[in-house]
Amino acid sequence: MIHQFWRAIAAFLVGVIIATAGANANGLEKPKGTVLLTVSGAISKTNAGETARFDLAMLEAIDSTVIETTTIWTDGIQHLRGVSLAALTKALGVNSGTLRAKAINDYVVEIPVTDAVEGGPIIAYELNGEQMPLRNKGPLWIVYPFDTDVAYKSEQIYTRSIWQLDRIEVVQ
């Protein structure tokens, strides 16, 4: 009887180890809240088939970066909080290619992964201390720190600042 008990415990522990290894092999937890961003394509970490799905808490856990900048779409200095593009691409194992960013209305822009640098663009989830509703560029907006580098004040960069972002496909 004692032998059967230890056998059952050992079988249970092996099952837990296998289940845990399978759940963590892809490196990402599953979202518990509303999914704001789905990333697909050439990524090495997933949590839903071949995609990575993120809720707000997951984005905040990767990185919380604040930029203060003016934009051509708003008045005055804006305070934006979000996950840096550099941190997100690193978390997904992306180091080359193009990010095909898509908005809820299917508007698409292409951003080279080389833009994902420290001190560069963020995927903002807060504007001036508040989450962004769909009617105000939300729920996510890719924003470059326009005031930190004159190179960010170009038509090419402005077109990459997609709002109402909900999908990114990484293409090589």
Rank of each mutant, 00 (worst) to 15 (best):
I2N: 10
H3W: 05
F5P: 00
F5Y: 13
W6V: 13
W6F: 15
R7C: 06
A8C: 09
I9E: 14
A10Y: 12
A11D: 00
L13H: 00
V14Q: 10
G15P: 11
G15T: 09
I18C: 05
T20C: 05
T20D: 06
A21S: 11
G22T: 10
A23T: 12
A23C: 04
G27A: 07
K30I: 12
K30N: 13
P31D: 13
K32C: 09
T34F: 07
L37T: 14
L37F: 13
S40I: 01
A42Y: 00
I43G: 08
S44P: 00
K45M: 04
T46Q: 12
A52W: 14
F54R: 15
F54S: 15
L56V: 13
A57R: 05
E60P: 12
A61P: 07
D63Y: 15
D63M: 12
T65R: 14
T65G: 12
I67A: 05
E68P: 03
E68M: 02
T69D: 06
I72K: 01
T74M: 05
Q78L: 03
Q78T: 01
H79E: 11
G82F: 07
V83E: 15
V83H: 15
L85F: 09
A86P: 03
A87K: 14
A87Y: 15
L88Q: 14
L88C: 08
K90T: 09
A91R: 15
L92D: 00
G93F: 09
N95G: 15
S96Y: 01
G97H: 12
T98A: 06
R100G: 03
R100H: 05
R100Q: 13
A101Y: 09
N105Q: 04
V109L: 07
E110F: 10
E110Y: 05
I111F: 08
I111Y: 02
I111L: 07
I111K: 15
V113D: 00
T114C: 03
T114K: 07
A116V: 06
A116T: 07
E118M: 07
G119D: 10
G119C: 11
G119H: 09
G120T: 03
G120I: 03
P121E: 00
A124P: 12
N128S: 06
N128D: 15
N128A: 02
G129L: 03
Q131I: 08
L140E: 04
W141I: 00
I142S: 05
I142V: 15
Y144W: 04
F146G: 02
D147L: 01
T148I: 01
T148A: 01
V150F: 01
S154A: 08
E155V: 07
Y158S: 10
T159G: 06
R160Q: 15
R160N: 14
W163Y: 10
W163T: 03
Q164W: 00
Q164E: 13
L165Y: 07
E169P: 00
E169L: 08
